[in-house]
Amino acid sequence: MEHAAQPHGSRKASPGLRGRRPGGPAEPDIIGDRRRGRGAQTNVSGRYEREARTAFDDGWQTLEELPPIRTEVQVEKAKRIITRNSSPDISFDRSINPYRGCEHGCTYCFARPTHANMGLSPGLDFETRLFAKPDAAALLERELAEPGYVPRTIAIGTNTDPYQPIEREYRIMRQILEVLSRTGHPVGIVTKSALVTRDIDILAPMAERGLAKVALSVTTLDRRLARSMEPRAATPPKRLETIRTLAEAGIPVTIMTAPIIPALNDMEIERLLEAGHAAGARHAGYVLLRLPLEVSPIFREWLMAEHPDRSRHVLSVMQSMRGGRDYDSEWGTRMRGSGPYAWQIGRRFELAAKRLGLNAERRGLRTDLFKPPVPIGGQLSLI
Rank of each mutant, 00 (worst) to 15 (best):
Y48E: 09
P15Q: 08
D309S: 08
A55K: 11
G377A: 00
S45Q: 03
P25F: 14
C106A: 07
A52P: 05
P25I: 15
A258K: 03
I81F: 04
P151C: 06
I154A: 00
R348Y: 06
Q175V: 02
Q61Y: 01
D58T: 09
M304T: 13
P147T: 11
L288A: 11
Y149L: 05
S193P: 06
P252V: 13
M267E: 14
L358Y: 07
T197S: 10
A136L: 00
M229K: 05
R38S: 12
R18V: 07
L272I: 14
K354T: 11
P7H: 02
Q319R: 15
A305Y: 05
L66E: 15
R362H: 09
S311A: 15
L358V: 07
P7Q: 11
P162V: 03
D199K: 12
R198H: 14
D29R: 15
R223E: 14
P262W: 10
A52H: 07
Q175I: 01
S87M: 15
T183R: 00
V317P: 12
G37A: 14
N43W: 06
P162G: 02
V314W: 01
A78P: 02
R94E: 11
A305G: 10
C102V: 00
Q175A: 13
L203K: 13
P262H: 13
A26S: 15
R232S: 12
E169A: 06
A13M: 07
R53T: 14
H283I: 02
Q319W: 04
A226E: 04
E65H: 06
T42I: 10
D222G: 07
W60F: 11
G210L: 00
G210S: 08
S45Y: 01
T333Y: 00
C106Y: 11
F92C: 11
L291G: 02
R142T: 10
V287A: 05
G148A: 08
A281Q: 08
T257Y: 10
D33P: 07
E330M: 10
S14D: 01
L221V: 08
E306S: 15
K77M: 09
A194G: 06
R168Y: 12
T42A: 09
D309C: 04
K354M: 10
G332I: 00
E230N: 04
G101N: 01
R152V: 02
S10T: 13
G39Q: 12
P372F: 04
E27C: 12
R290P: 04
R347Y: 03
W331R: 00
D89Q: 04
A226P: 03
V214S: 05
E51V: 14
I31F: 15
A278M: 06
I30H: 14
I69L: 15
P259C: 11
A132R: 01
M318R: 10
W343N: 08
I31R: 15
A116G: 11
E274F: 01
L216P: 01
K354E: 14
D57S: 11
T257S: 10
V218Y: 01
L315Q: 12
P162E: 00
P231T: 09
S338D: 09
I376P: 08
E208W: 06
R38T: 13
S338W: 02
F299V: 12
S311R: 13
G378D: 08
D33R: 13
V295T: 13
N85R: 05
R325C: 07
P186M: 07
S329Q: 12
A78C: 01
R223S: 10
M173F: 06
E361D: 05
G39A: 10
R174Q: 14
A226Y: 01
